[in-house]
Design a binder for these strands. Structure first.
Length: 197
DNA sequence: CGTACGATCTGCT
DNA sequence: GCAGATCGTACGA
């Protein structure tokens, strides 16, 4: 597959830079015979043991968070609110538990399959514009935790989409009010994408 | 072992 | 705009 992004890309130590750089990349899944993918439109950075919003804050290391301590370029999928799977990309080096939460994509591959998974009839920018929605749209679940993102199940492609800085909206992260001062960090990045379709 | 709660979405009002 | 769904994880006893 042309343009598949190598693992070295994710081993960037500046997870905030990586979160912003991931905008415009294509997230692709192959589940069975179904290939689906979307352009990444929204991300959040989680900066390891010093970030109170991170699952790895304070060096917390459990069965769930263990994969965050692995090398950059692995998937970290977990269940949120008992209902939704959330997809993260592990960043940086081994033992540095940085991660980027992918919060939204816009479908570019496999619209039919995506709409079917989402139980929707017509194309809409809302089909995968949320962290729980995109995992359902792309067929991602807990069995996809701990995969390397240069494999044949989940990978990212760089199709050379150019992102103008003026099209990126930076803001506070969502749903992390418990994180004290860290809740205000400008670690969320939105591609103002729907405006330009 | 028990319990509180969460990096959310949907449907109903 | 808001409440309910729904269950694994984390942590304290």
């Amino acid at each position: 597959m042309a343009g598949k992004i190598p693992l070295s890309y994710y081993q960037e130590e500046d997870v905030v830079f990586l979160a912003r750089d991931l905008l415009g990349k294509i997230l692709v899944t192959k589940i069975g015979n179904s290939i689906t993918g979307g352009i990444i439109t929204e991300t959040e950075a989680y900066a390891g043991i010093n970030d109170r919003a991170s699952h790895a804050y304070g060096g917390r290391r459990t069965g769930r968070t263990e994969v965050m301590y692995n090398y950059g370029g692995m998937s970290y999928v977990y269940l949120c609110y008992g209902v939704h799977y959330l997809f993260n990309i592990v960043a940086s080096k081994r033992e540095t538990p940085h991660a980027v939460l992918v919060r939204g994509v816009y479908p570019v591959i496999g619209w039919e399959t995506i709409l079917c998974r989402r139980n929707m009839a017509i194309k809409s920018s809302k089909v995968s514009n949320g962290p729980g929605k995109l995992t359902k749209a792309l067929g991602i679940n807990l069995t996809h935790n701990g995969l390397t993102l240069d494999g044949d199940v989940i990978w990212l492609e760089d199709r050379g989409v150019i992102i103008k800085q003026g099209h990126i909206l930076t803001s506070k992260r969502i749903g992390v009010a418990y994180a004290g001062d860290d809740a205000h960090l400008p670690y969320r990045f939105n591609l103002q994408f729907e405006k330009y379709i």
